[in-house]
Design a protein around this nucleic acid. Structure first.
Lengths: 400, 400
DNA sequence: GCCATTTAATTTGGTTGTCAAATTTATTTT
DNA sequence: AAAATAAATTTGACAACCAAATTAAATGGC
């Protein structure tokens, strides 16, 4: 069976709680978490000593109350500097954050080539980080932890990349190559998981124990948070939301299979249909994002073909989301990703369709939130990954 | 956030391990679980003192070895008597087992009516248990724990039944009604979860940490085991595998929605199609199970309509299973339920289709096992539920 | 202005779970 | 019988908690 990996439960819970409800008093932590006040004192003392947490001034407090005033705690933003890097097809996006999760610097560096050896990519990541940090007078060595996201089949625990469009070889211990090159602890993960981590650590998922994040961009992704932790599938890889099948022998997907959700709603799928049904002269723009814009505009101006394309995408998406809800019964679903800009266009259809496809029980159905991050979503997710790794490491250390 | 529910980790792990590998020595438990030999000694001493575990004679052991001989441990079958009851449409099936999981008695009692108040049903369950126990000279009061399964929306944790075809009222605290009437601790659960529990405690899932059980009978069910525990959805209800959608605006399901998997592969779905395409004179039998037999026979004898019906069911099923695999990436999938008798008929198609629909990575795909239990599957699952409740309660007790 | 009251935070003392290292026990080999 | 080997246990210590008692820091009433 599995080895013992139980790591200081209270410490983790308390730190997570302070992060979620920044500016919280010890009493309230004890009440909310069920941990005894005695333990909260002990643990927070340790966190203060380590510099992770700081006491902040209580607001002068309107209502005049008796008793010893509560002392509020918050993460100590200055404690550490962290960075996340997302390797895409043709560029690396970097976000540098402080320990409080605030963005300190960001940068996009074009990639000389889309594919290379692990060592090459490590060099590029180093360059991207250096370029990002230079303006604020910092250096890669000033970082406490780095998270790197890339697409493909990535085993976050072992740090191995089984396959990625980014790397020219298979089964590479990419995390170790990066740690070696950068001289700072690195975590890696599949990019689909990054959005969920971003929501969990900095976004709409703060303080929620169970939720699911779905993203639409070039591809379609899913991240699952169960019991306050990212669920990475039982073997470290999973949650291939983009490739769940919504139609028997359906549309051809770029993965080579048929009927994948992605084959109905990803950029290339929409444009493929548009290409067949709508004259090229009616579609403005050259890049994919521009063409999608153009397609939406056509639909809004009453073009039936365009409307039909968008409409089907909406219906298929609702089918996929319904299946996720039927399986997990989550309390919250967060829809994210750049393409959610268009959500309002088919929201009506989507919600209506969804209601037709989820099992109706006597309680509130899953709440569905749309959270469109700026284009830094993925890099911030990578930074969240860095954060996760850092706190894991710190909490591992003996109580200095 | 969540209250502390951490319950004596090692104790649970060690007991589970002894159950999984009956007749195991302390050294091996320590090696397998990563728990220190010192702790294994302490914990097993406690389990022995409580009578849950017994030392069994080591087999005379072929290979002659030096050193102190290992003392094998196994569950003490005589420790407790447990019962599981499954309430179906027109009968209650009961299985009585000992603490080792061996069947001691079983019985089917017809139900006077399909639907009643919680109190009525509690009376019926009491009657069914009494009838089962009488021949072995036992009584309901001799039971240490009882598990009851029924279909509908059952919250196992709170013990409430939000809705069930069996109960005439909604939102009933059915567990408490049962405990009250029977005078013995009762657990209740949705029947879909029972099959997974049966596999986890007594079946192909013994000793596996993560797997998924899919069942086809009147309906279609799914049970999910993650990290050695049944995953009941984030809010206690979930895993509606029968109602995941495999076709947009597809066949009408008895749940009122369209395109549910169940609407393609459950008994009623097959017979609905058969009724339309095959003359009633060609279909033998009157009950659903007999008619399904007849349909399979027709298909095997070359009837194209029958073949086509079965074939589509197989294709749709493979689609549903593929989706589950793509989401969870489990190491093992167990196909169970009475209808798996016919699996061999479409196994070829199923496996081939499945391979076309799961994401192909550089490692072994999920292993798929067919495990057709005798008709006691559900009742044994309910008994496993009783077992789970019992051990939880025992491990909670102070180390007497 | 001082004492009672109230609430937050801390300290004290003790329990429990766990392990590393040393020791005992039960067996086979020499 | 002594040496070797391997399993199981005991010992001693430590870390994580918590309940209860105590201390700290404010306000309200007189």
């Amino acid at each position: 069976m599995s080895p013992r990996t139980d790591t200081r439960g209270s410490r983790r819970t308390i730190l997570a709680h302070i992060r979620a409800r920044s500016g919280i008093a010890r009493v309230d932590i004890a009440r909310d978490t069920g941990i005894s006040p005695a333990t909260v004192t002990t643990v927070t003392a340790e966190l203060l000593a380590k510099g992770l947490v700081a006491e902040v001034l209580a607001e002068p407090d309107s209502g005049t109350k008796r008793g010893r005033p509560r002392v509020l705690l918050a993460l100590n933003s200055d404690a550490f500097l962290l960075a996340g890097a997302k390797i895409s097809n043709n560029h690396i996006t970097v976000a540098v954050i402080d320990f409080g999760g605030e963005l300190v610097a960001d940068h996009v560096m074009p990639l000389p080539r889309a594919r290379g050896t692990a060592r090459d990519m490590a060099d590029y990541v180093h360059a991207a980080l250096t370029e990002t940090l230079a303006p604020i007078g910092k250096d890669v060595a000033d970082l406490a932890s780095i998270g790197v996201g890339l697409s493909g089949f990535v085993d976050a625990e072992s740090g191995e990349v089984h396959w990625s469009p980014t790397l020219s070889t298979r089964n590479v211990p990419f995390r170790d190559v990066l740690t070696d090159r950068l001289g700072v602890p690195v975590q890696i993960d599949n990019d689909a998981n990054l959005a969920a981590l971003a929501e969990l650590w900095f976004g709409a998922g703060r303080g929620m124990s169970d939720f699911i994040v779905l993203t639409i961009e070039e591809g379609v992704g899913m991240g699952i948070v169960l019991d306050n932790r990212l669920f990475r599938g039982t073997r470290g890889i999973g949650a291939e939301f983009g490739h769940i099948k919504v139609q028997l022998d359906g549309a051809l997907c770029r993965c080579g299979q048929r009927g994948c959700l992605e084959a109905y709603i990803a950029d290339y799928a929409l444009l493929r249909e548009a290409g067949a049904a709508i004259g090229a002269d009616q579609m403005d723009g050259t890049g994919a994002p521009q063409q999608i814009d153009s397609l939406i505009a056509l639909a809004e101006s009453g073009n039936h073909a365009a409307q039909s394309i968008i409409d089907r995408a909406g219906r298929m998406f609702s089918l996929g989301v319904a299946n996720v809800i039927n399986i997990f019964d989550p309390e919250l679903i967060i829809l994210s990703g750049e393409r959610m800009r268009f959500f309002s266009y088919f929201e009506e259809t989507f919600r209506q369709r969804l209601a037709q496809n989820i099992i109706d029980i006597d309680r509130d159905p899953a709440r569905i939130t749309v959270h469109t991050w700026e284009d830094l979503l993925w890099a911030k997710g990578a930074a969240a990954l860095a954060m996760e790794g850092l706190t894991d490491r710190i909490l591992q250390e003996p109580a200095g």
